[in-house]
Structures are given as structure tokens and as C-alpha cells.
Amino acid sequence: MKAFRYERPTTVEAAVRAHAGGALLKANGIDVLDRMKERLDQPDRVVTLVDVPGLDRVERRPDGSLSIGAMTTLATLAASADVAAACPTLATAAGQAASPALRNRATLGGNLGQHTRCGYYRFASFRCFKRGDADCPVQAPGGVQEPAGIFGIDLCACAHPSSLAPVLAAGGAVAVVASAKGERRVPVAALYEPPARGKASDWVLGEGDVLVRVEVPPVVAGSHRVGYEEVRQKAAFDWPLVVGAVWVAARDGVVADARVWLGAVAPSPWRAEAAEKALVGKPFTAAQAAVAGEAAVAGATPLPGTAYKVELVKVVVRRALVAALERRS
């Protein structure tokens, strides 16, 4: 890791100033340190949020919604009674991610802002569209494709690593972003953008934008149902192959509104709109969950090595919906 000047603000305003001035933004550093050790990032200046007070907390607000500081660890999310009550799938996803030692350090902000784990991106000796090369080696003859995506992969075929982002997007969560102009609210569903050549990060935030907290509307008992499902090669300490997160509003057993989001299948979290359409206006049943699962793969353009993910998406969406259906609260 190259030597750097470490800037430790104690206010969000000072963090914004340092980040706007070109310092690399770091939470606890799980992903940032990896990138710096591989010299993907070689900053002269790093700004960290570790000394900014109050960012590591979960608060349940009077309306039942959650306000979660960007420095809240995944372990805290997984263990929080407030998270379990207001958005149980967030607790589930956080508790299944990585390993106990990583969950004790990995933060919500870092999880949402982490770069792709694509092996071609992570090692500078490979070509990579995100690092400025003209093409993506995943698509080239001999490319390792299995971890890659099946949606929106024409320029860059990587899979987005965050399992929390699909949950938050499905739940209608909003990221609160501080900048020199003040705070603005960005839905988590709009936090990411398609790949661009030479753009390493997947999200829309730029220099001087500091994600300070995420607000999550409450899952209202009797009106809303949420479900989460992921498939991995290993039961623990592994990246999911496919993530599915669903939010369903049903009245008298009929779906009024639905949001279906997928992770690890596209360069950014992926909204399965066709699955949502397959649910709205229909009875909320296990049979309809299977129909939505089939619909969720609309628009998929799998590579030979990622064709298996098409089948996994169908299963994951169905299981997430059935989990939502069977959830009591």
C-alpha cells in the first residue's frame, strides 16, 4: 500500500471538504484497503469517517422508520431489534454476509459503496473496462464467466457484490448524502448507474458526496411483506451467486404493489420489473410467486458461463416471495 496522508474529520462538513478536495473516502476500510493493497487505488490522501460521531447507530423513529448511520456495522444491523422489527430482511442479509470478523468491521456505507469483486477488476495485470480498457475480458474467449452477470452486461459483465443494496432498494430506502450544497436524498434504487469506461465505482455519488445515513420505511404489519433469498456455493463466508429481495403490499390477498430486486446478476443492483408486473393485481400465492420467478429473467442475456444464473434467479425470486408470503408480520 502506498503511503498516504490520513485526514480524520470530526464533522460531516469537514469530511465533505476533504473528499471534495480529492481525498479517497473510507469507512472502516474493508474494501478500500483491499483496493489500495492491490494498487488499484493509490491515493495521496485518504479521508475516513471513523472519527465523525453519531454515524454508527440505528435509530427507530416515531413513524416506525429506521435511520441507519453509514458507519453502522453489519453485525449491529444483524443484531438490532429495531432493524428486525422495521425491516427484517435487512437483518437477515447483513447477518449472512461475509464472516463474523468482517461483519464486526464492515459498514453499511462501505457495503453500498464497495467496488465489484470481479477478478478482472481486482487485479491490475488484467484488462478491465472499469479501469479504462476498451473491452471486458469476461466476454473474451477463455474468460472466467461464472461469477459474472446476466443482465445489462454488454460493456462490463461484472456482478454487483452488495447483498444489502437489493434489500434496501426493494424496501424503498433512501440514502441521505451530504455535499457542499447541503444534504440531498437519493433513493437506493437510484444510487447506481450502468458501467462506463474508466469509472471504477458503480454508484452515482462523486467527489464531495458523503453518504451519511440510510432511511428505511417501516414494513407495516398486515400491509407489507418482505422476503430475502440468496444462493451461494458455500453456506458461509462466500459471495452470493444470486440475491433476491422482495417487498409486497397486499390487500385482501391481492397484490397492490410489488418491488423485486436482484443482486450479483448485473453490474449494479437489478430491478426485475417484469416480475413486479406479474404480481400486481394478482392473488398473492405460491403459484403466482413461481410465475413471477419465471418473469424475473426477462431481458437476461447470459454468457455460456452464467446461464446457470438464469435458473437461479427464477428459484431465488420464487423462494423470496414465498418467504414473504409465509412471514407472519
Binding site: 484497503l33 463474523p100 468482517l102 464486526n104 468491521r105
Partner: peptide, 25 residues
């Protein structure tokens, strides 16, 4: 790189990977 666990230590009693923590933090 925080992927093997051989550097696991306790930080305030909780396990963390020492390789993935900046000392000054």
C-alpha cells in the same frame, strides 16, 4: 485481504481481521 482468518484478533472483545484494520483507526 480479509479472506482467510489467519490474522483474527479480538478488538474490544470481538473478532476482527487485523489485516483489514488500519492501526491508527
Amino acid at each position: 485481504r480479509g479472506t482467510c482468518g489467519a490474522c483474527t484478533v479480538l478488538l474490544d472483545g470481538k473478532p476482527v481481521y487485523a489485516c483489514s484494520v488500519l492501526a491508527l483507526d
